[in-house]
Design a protein around this nucleic acid. Sequence first.
DNA 1: CGGCTTTGACCAGCGC
DNA 2: GCGCTGGTCAAAGCCG
Length: 336
Amino acid sequence: MTMDLSTCSVDTSLSLFDLNINPLMYSDRLNSTMNGTETSKMTVSETQQANVLAAELNKMVEENKKLSEMLMVMLQNYNTLRNHMMELISRNKNADSSNSSKGMQVATPPKKRKLENDNNNTTTTGGYAESSSSEEGYSKQKPNTSIEESKIKISTVYAKADPSDNRLVVKDGYQWRKYGQKVTRDNPSPRAYFKCSFAPTCLVKKKVQRSVEDQSVLVATYEGEHNHPHPSQTDAILAGSNVRGQPNIGSVPCLTSINSSGPTITLDLTQPGLSHHQDIGAHKSNSDEITKSPVFYQFLIEQMASNLSKDPTFKSALATAISGRYFQQSLGNTKY
DNA sequence: CGGCTTTGACCAGCGC
DNA sequence: GCGCTGGTCAAAGCCG
């Protein structure tokens, strides 16, 4: 929780230098074209073409500006959510400390065998939350467990669900097979038990139960670590790309859309996958570390590339730029 | 027909 | 040892 996304130097600006295009080259050519220094060599159609190029260049600059603005808005939203999350965490900590200091155990019955959903490292992300209990947290539950067992990763995910929807389903992109359901003592709503069915060797389990406080919130507890890539990644690999439907790289939930004002990248913090940090990396327990991870950067880059590649204006601009580059080279060759 | 869900039965851990 | 509880198994049913 030490790193702010806003401090991340993710430069999303599409520099023409990055495209190996020298803007001066264009401006020089355009200026000389306008000044008529090359008019003797250029036909009317070439002048029109230059105008089109200039217009497209301006369009690209505008879209670049829009993208930067959208990113800024996204960062602002993220900061707002993060502040809200920190507030909730501090509230929880205060509540826990006050309860423990007073010796209150109203919500936790003394007979409880296992300390489930130990909300120690709980984080919330705008109506969506996760927690991750560390290895020692799990070893507390089973003091005599082996070292191997004590390394089982436990993470808890809170997902907003439709109260009218009785299914205990938390969509995280993985394939789960339900193998049991049980009504527990401390919660009137049943708890569903799931096993990862994507890979037979994957021993990851998931427990889903409605929150006692808020029935509209599903609490999913993940045990273990997937030993296979995310199904969507596999799909993308099999398909050769990630272009079908809404691209979902890894499990980082991201809805992408291209509207009239340009491509929009929307980090959907309400989707389960983001909090399921097992997917994102080495079990980071908060979104700060997620954003710190190289996977996140890779995801951002791939999303941008994906959106840009879908944008016809970008394609045409890129094609124009490349052809312009060749044109420039061919001019240089003819000069020497 | 294969995969998934449902659900009652069974097992193991824990406290008394 | 007994009862309580959480977790798992497996047969039956459902569904595309």
